[in-house]
Nucleic acid binder design. Structure first.
Lengths: 142, 142
DNA sequence: ATTTGACCTTATAGTAACTATAATGTTTAG
DNA sequence: CTAAACATTATAGTTACTATAAGGTCAAAT
């Protein structure tokens, strides 16, 4: 039995975010005290912690809502969760690959850019490289 | 001298996005034909291609606007660009590190989850692991 | 008794970079 | 004449919050 500030502390989620989760029905509307303050209990901490951890594992709020909804209907969400975890792993793999590729392009651009003059026309400088792309094979390991 | 559809084709940017760029003043308002259609020329292709490439290198529209504004004032933006490239490289490094960490957590979660039963209570299953975290040292290399 | 401070409330707008939709006007080809 | 393939605008939706404004409640100190 505590107010939103305490729930915020216990779960490590801001009060703003808690209200937001309630608005999008990720959290149930809690009962209210006479003065209209939200009243929570331990099960709310549990639920919110689950949400927080799942977020840190990069699950979307939609995913989380789906998982919690299963729970509500007395169905074990575990296999769904496992599938989503596997999917996450895939997606993050792709994302990492993309970033590494991008990283390489940026490094190459930087190296080549070092050898080029300032140029308002953007014809012979790094800006030109951005617009028209890097030359095919420029010794990046120079 | 062509309309927005052609510019879209030449630069590989959707017409919606072109209008959006104009709205946020990343592209200058073009002159209009009698019927109100936007009229573009080759310099617009150049500008838009620059924007597109910079976006693919993960530059923000704000960054790009800043670079193009320098250009407008007849100042070579090259050193600014080089700094931003260097900064990008740093940021993407961090991002990659974060994702690899996340990736590892997900893989560990998945491995441990495989050994656990379905459980509506979320007490002995993968869901429980999400809420309370993975045990400190579970042989991930099993 | 009042005022200060720490709580709580709601509604609304802003963030990034688009994308989608609706409702409408123009031009060209059949 | 009409249908397609263009063009126009304004508005809202996306994700997951965060920030702001304007106010109500409550306990303690003055």
């Amino acid at each position: 039995m505590f107010l939103i500030g305490k729930l915020s502390q216990f779960a490590g989620v801001s009060t703003q975010t808690i209200r937001y989760y309630e608005r999008i029905a990720l959290l149930p509307a809690p009962r209210r005290s006479e003065n209209g303050y939200r009243i929570y209990d331990d099960t709310d901490i549990d639920r919110l912690r689950f949400i927080k951890q799942a977020r840190q594992l990069n699950f979307s709020l939609d995913d989380i809502a789906e998982i919690l909804a299963l729970r509500e209907r007395n169905q074990a969400p575990c296999s769904v969760v496992m599938n989503k975890v596997a999917q996450q792993i895939e997606e993050i793999n792709s994302r990492i690959a993309e970033l590494i590729h991008l990283q390489n392009e940026l490094k190459r651009l930087y190296q080549v850019g070092l050898t080029m003059p300032e140029d308002i026309e953007m014809k012979h400088c790094v800006c030109h490289l951005i617009k028209d792309g890097l030359p095919k094979e420029v010794d990046a390991h120079a």
